[in-house]
Nucleic acid binder design. Structure first.
Lengths: 220, 220
DNA sequence: ACCTGAACACCGTTCAAGT
DNA sequence: ACCTGAACACCGTTCAAGT
């Protein structure tokens, strides 16, 4: 409320993260950001170039948290067990993203490659090279992993996210018979609540890719 | 220019696709959309509820093109060769998306599940079930594929997209040594131009997942 | 140097009015 | 019924002015 002077880029970005955590990125405007700091919107422009720079800064902050989480890991040396080392790294990144559900959307919105993201992928590649990957296979692996290396994947279709998937799908039963059957199959025991474990699904997809890469390691 | 009367939802959506194709979604506003139809912005609201409905309609149009492409495929019966059938379907979808580079971004921006997208995933699931998948494994496969089933994957880090990756990365060489070495390795022959083939990388990632699923088919 | 108020050029959208 | 003009409540951002 009261304007504590001494604004700084860091303070602006911390406030932006707080707003995004509470209200999502839709609620993050230059005016709301300024208000949360007890200041006028125009004051922000002395510390960040514009709103795009604020979003870039958001990526930096999240990547900082991820790097911190990765650094605190007690992972095996990649030379010993690259797969476990990679798995732990990705799941540590995922834990950070769970705290900032808006982060994937902001990552995707950035067109240029940020240094912080490049540095993270450099670490992922370094891990694989130490684990016995050629640069060529490492390159392909980065593409194959895509955003999964950072702990999230794109879900375009989420029957699980529906409030009442059974009713919703029943309404369009003839249009999507297999999805209806799939849910019926999953709920054969009775309760449908939480029938889909996102964390387990993420790990399944991740393991599928890591297993595939392990099979190619040393051969390509 | 001259207002040809006889606006309709379909005509509005076709115009919206044309604008997105030419200028990207940033250039798609209710005002620009109306102008391209020789009409005032407010006229649009007689045919679409609001801008969100326009974006939903964009998804419908693209999904329609994808379903059309899939229907025209001469793919093997899933019972005979589910992997080839799936591969052809995904790559056909990808060809449509290449024509509409803005589409992935719009897909991601939709929170609710659209009927058109649900129908597509229903087809994917049906293909797998006919190919010998249990509903349980089919469910996991849908998650593992994610947006890849529709022909695109999330690339958060694209050194390839840089105009001059060598110089750009050289500037931050000490921060990302492995990425620099990877590019040096890829350009050992000389020309770096087109060193990364996005289509090939997409197919590599897709095959990695399809191979993994094939190994589990019938066992889970 | 840092912060501010008023203003500008945009948005999506409501509303009352036209035909 | 369909289309319109003016207006409203927002955006991000520029600019000249304050301290």
């Amino acid at each position: 409320m009261a304007a504590e002077a001494g604004l700084s880029r860091e303070r602006v970005l911390r406030a932006a993260v707080a707003i995004a955590d509470e209200r999502g990125t839709a609620g993050l405007t230059m005016r709301s950001l300024a208000a949360s700091l007890g200041v006028e919107a125009m004051s922000l422009y002395h510390h960040v170039a514009n709103k795009e720079a604020v979003l870039d800064g958001l990526v930096e902050v999240v990547m900082g948290e991820i790097e911190e989480a990765v650094a605190g890991l007690d992972a095996p040396a990649p030379e010993e067990d690259w797969r476990t080392a990679m798995r732990m790294r990705v799941l540590a990144a995922r834990e950070v993203l769970v705290r900032h559900p808006w982060a994937p959307g902001v990552f995707e919105s950035r067109t240029g490659t940020s240094l912080a993201v490049a540095r993270y992928y450099d670490g992922v590649l370094g891990l694989m090279v130490r684990g016995g990957f050629s640069y060529e296979l490492g390159h392909r692996a980065l593409h194959a992993l895509g955003s999964r290396a950072l702990g999230f994947s794109q879900e375009l279709f989420e029957p699980d996210g529906m409030e009442a998937p059974e009713e919703a799908l029943a309404a369009m039963a003839e249009a999507v018979p297999h999805l209806v059957a799939m849910i019926a199959d999953a709920s054969h025991g009775g309760a449908l609540l939480g029938w889909c474990d996102y964390q387990a699904e993420f790990e399944f997809g991740l393991d599928l890719i890591l297993d595939g890469l392990e099979r190619l390691r040393g051969k390509v």
